[in-house]
């Protein structure tokens, strides 16, 4: 270091407390945007996660599709091939996996001390950390979904209507929001990244197999049927699957025959909303843990 600090017009006098306080919403969006920008800069400069995130669901589609290639015709419904059946499962599972990993960067920030920068700052709410991660994950999930929808169409699964695609986007958003929140909560609560990875590891695939992503409820053992019918993933998969199979659909359409009765589109969405609300409330004490 050869230069020295030159005299400068910079006013070093403190002013922090005199500054007028902007509205809470303006503050929240400012900090959320800045945190989101950081995540996208990281993605831009380290694009390998994006590549892997796009390639992986395509491999699911191709491999699982080939696995059941010779399954009896109409096993999964009238005029339905397994590719069509599978696409919604892969869409939801991909979005879910991305969201489940959302806590990892925060955990690394915590371990490297970068999170302290955020915790010492007068954030209007620590939910901006959740919001930024959700925006980031949802953007990735939409990109992945678009690729899966496109690839499925090429593989012969057809394509939902424009309104149907909008509904898919909404459903993907709802599942990502709740799972991202839970993952961030774990990033604040667990001792370190080893523990977080362990939780992700034991949650990820079991939740996939205990959902209707790969097989319909009617295939399952009675006990698994109950679990799958309670699994939030199922509440995202079944409505999307219905959109894939039926061009005429409404909020009243029955999309799932749960062990306790039939559930329509609106109820499924309401359950996802409820899941999000519970997840966000559940993590509140964790975000506050150090200080409000």
């Amino acid at each position: 270091m050869s230069q020295s600090i030159s005299p400068s017009p910079f006013n070093l006098a403190p002013t922090a407390a005199d500054a007028p306080e902007p509205s809470a919403i303006a503050e929240f969006s400012q900090e959320t945007l800045a945190l989101t920008k950081r995540l996208f800069i990281q993605l831009q400069r380290r694009p390998s996660t994006l590549m892997a995130g796009v390639i992986q669901p395509l491999m699911w589609l191709v491999l699982f599709g080939a696995l059941f290639y010779n399954a009896p015709q109409n096993l999964f419904g009238d005029d339905v091939n397994y590719g069509q059946f599978l696409a919604p499962g892969v869409i939801v599972f991909t979005a879910f996996s991305g969201a489940l990993n959302a806590g990892l960067p925060v955990m690394f920030d915590r371990e490297f001390g970068f999170l302290n920068r955020l915790l010492v700052a007068p954030l209007s709410s620590r939910y901006s950390i959740v919001a930024a991660s959700t925006i980031y994950i949802i953007s990735l999930a939409f990109l992945q979904t678009a690729v899966i929808v496109g690839a499925s169409a090429v593989l012969g699964a057809g394509m939902p209507s424009l309104l149907g695609l909008g509904a898919i986007a909404l459903i993907v958003f709802l599942i990502v929001l709740g799972v991202t929140a839970l993952s961030l909560g774990l990033a604040f609560a667990l001792p370190g990244h080893i523990e977080l990875i362990a939780v992700i590891f034991v949650t990820n695939l079991p939740l996939l197999f205990a959902s209707t992503a790969l097989a319909p409820l009617s295939f399952m053992a009675p006990w698994l049927k109950w679990i799958a019918a309670l699994n939030p993933l199922t509440y995202a998969i079944e409505p999307i699957r219905y959109l894939y199979f039926n061009s005429d659909w409404s909020l009243g359409s029955v999309v799932m025959a749960a062990p306790w009765g039939e559930m329509n589109f609106a109820v499924m969405l309401a359950v996802l909303l409820g899941f999000d609300a519970i997840a966000l409330l559940l993590i509140q004490p964790l975000l506050r843990r150090r200080f409000a």
Binding site: E27, E31, L33, L35, I41, Q42, R45, R117, L118, P122
Partner: peptide
């Protein structure tokens, strides 16, 4: 208060200016 920690934690992927921009936004 401004806090300068003992172990400097920087996001090594960001440039110095980007880090300061992030910090400025966190202080609104």
């Amino acid at each position: 208060l401004g806090y300068v920690a003992q172990e400097v934690a920087l996001d090594k992927v960001l440039t110095g200016r980007e880090l300061l921009e992030l910090q400025a936004a966190l202080y609104h």
